[in-house]
């Protein structure tokens, strides 16, 4: 939500707060009571950018399930934030970063939504994706050339409303804060999940993303550090075990 919208909403709320009691005072006895206006406080509480600590447990599931119960419990919407950017900060590939989002992607493709991979670092390997339950015909891979085309393609895909999730890998250049904000707005407009893989060094710079997770490897587990979460607590850590088939140790032959 940009500052202009915020400002307008605040103004409306202020007006309602000042008008409310006056209206009820003018009401004549015997007249039909006016339809009950939502209380200003409740209106305030429904705003997504106001964080309520107390109601954290009662909050309904608004997010899209990650497929990992431990992670769902930490997130405010009990899942990936819907129609928003999720930043995944990672330095080293191969620690289970795709396995983290694959259950969600598989579910989206099964629902018939399109999933777009923009600038993947390597070839997405079809047999592994099918094993994870992804419907390959709903998967589109983009290789735009140059930073401008990349951002354009990402924004168009997010905005279109046709796309269930966009997974984007940051190229060599770091996108400007303005561009990240545009992507976040585009994701909101198009009701699209946006996963943005960025290097761990970006953790220091602020970002408009709704959720920022730092991914590290801890032995045979994937260690997640929740850096930022809009309207929720941050700073928690969670360890997710990798698939037992992968980390099972055979008797070495050599």
């Amino acid at each position: 939500m940009n500052s202009a919208e915020n400002f307008l909403q605040n103004k409306q709320l202020a007006q309602q707060a000042s008008n409310g009691p006056v209206l009820s005072g003018q009401q004549q006895p015997g007249q039909q009571p006016e339809p009950v206006q939502p209380q200003p406080l409740q209106q305030l509480l429904t705003r997504p950018d106001i964080w309520q600590l107390a109601s954290g447990q009662r909050r309904p599931r608004t997010g899209i399930s990650t497929g990992y119960r431990g992670l769902d419990a930490l997130l405010t919407g009990h899942g990936w934030p819907r129609a928003a950017t999720t930043e995944l900060l990672i330095d080293k590939a191969g620690i289970g970063e795709m396995s983290l989002i694959l259950p969600t992607l598989a579910e989206l493709t099964r629902q018939g939504r399109m999933v777009i991979l923009a600038n993947p670092p390597h070839i997405p390997y079809a047999p592994a994706l099918v094993q994870a339950g992804v419907q390959l015909e709903k998967l589109l891979i983009l290789h735009p050339r140059g930073q401008r085309d990349q951002l354009w393609a990402a924004e168009q895909s997010l905005q279109s409303g046709a796309c269930g999730a966009l997974i984007q890998w940051q190229g060599k250049e770091t996108p400007a804060d303005k561009d990240l904000r545009r992507l976040q707005v585009a994701a909101r407009d198009g009701d699209c999940l946006h996963f943005h893989f960025r290097p761990g060094s970006c953790a220091q710079t602020p970002s408009p993303a709704a959720l920022r997770l730092q991914l590290k490897s801890d032995g045979e587990q994937l260690a997640l550090h929740l850096l930022k979460q809009s309207s929720g607590k941050s700073g928690q850590r969670v360890h997710l075990a990798r698939h037992p088939d992968l980390v099972r140790r055979d008797q070495p032959l050599h």
């Binding site: 079809a126 891979i141 290789h143 168009q156």
Partner: peptide, 24 residues
């Protein structure tokens, strides 16, 4: 909507920038 998006991407990025994957 998906087809419109694909057409748009293809028009700007070129035919070769888009692909899908299948099993073989």
């Amino acid at each position: 909507e998906s087809y419109q998006l694909i057409d748009k991407l293809k028009a700007r990025l070129g035919h070769q920038a888009l692909s899908g994957v299948t099993l073989k």
